[in-house]
Amino acid sequence: MSKTTAFSQRNLKELIRDPLSYLFCLGFPLVMLVVMTLVNNGIESSTADLPPGAVSAAPTIFQIDKLAGGIAVFGLTFLMLFTCLTVAKDRSGAFLMRLYATPMRSANFIAGYMLPTFVLGIIQIVITLAASLIIALIKDVELNVGGLVLSAAVLMPTVVMFIALGVLFGTMFSDKSAPGLCSIVISLASFLGGIWFDADSTGGFLKKLCDVLPFIHSVKAARLTCALDFENVLPHLLISTAYAALLTVISIIAFKSRMKADLQ
């Protein structure tokens, strides 16, 4: 067995044996799917009372075809949290020290943190999108299965991006301060990712901020793919891929320099 495989297996076990990670990574997105669908029901039925002839409201971003991509990205923010906690906890005890004294190298550590969380990310997306499909069937909303499958693929760079962020925060901050910091990022990402409101209908600074950050591009790439609107996907996909690459490089540099500092 290779060092990276051994460390990946250990990290996977640590993650999946922590009931909180199920609750947040799998349970919470599912709950949000259901809750937001119910919210959407409320909005729809209130507009249904409009007098005949009034323009009926356009489908909201809480309709399942829009919601699916947003919640899939939202779920990944929790993957970031758990990646971050794994790294920060390992650092806080003597566990990493013990491994530093073995033939493990920094590449084994980083790959060992990223591989299992990547697998979990894929599982999480598949479950979220499958649940979305079920809701779409129940609600009789058109949702293309091929589009859903492709949007899972389009979200791969976003999985990498959130994992890289998790490794970065886990490397930079202690296991005490990391959770707080991650929850700020979770709130920011879900807000500025346009998951809970239609960012395009806003303007000015808020819209600019959304566009500069990667989150809305991940959400839009998934939503557009879901809607089979492939022409407009590419720019968003490119931006989220670039962010994934950049953050991966930064997190590797951060981990390596932390390891070097630990060994002074």
Binding site: S2, T5, R10, K13, E14, A94
Partner: peptide, 30 residues
């Protein structure tokens, strides 16, 4: 590193792994 083994002052084991798995994990590292 090949010649030495260390048991650190703070017990450093993988908490969510069983005893056997902890040992297997270190075997994997070697």
């Amino acid at each position: 590193k090949k010649l030495t083994g260390i048991s650190p002052q703070d017990t450093a084991v993988a908490e969510n792994l069983t005893v056997t798995e902890n040992l297997q994990f270190i075997c994997g590292i070697y």
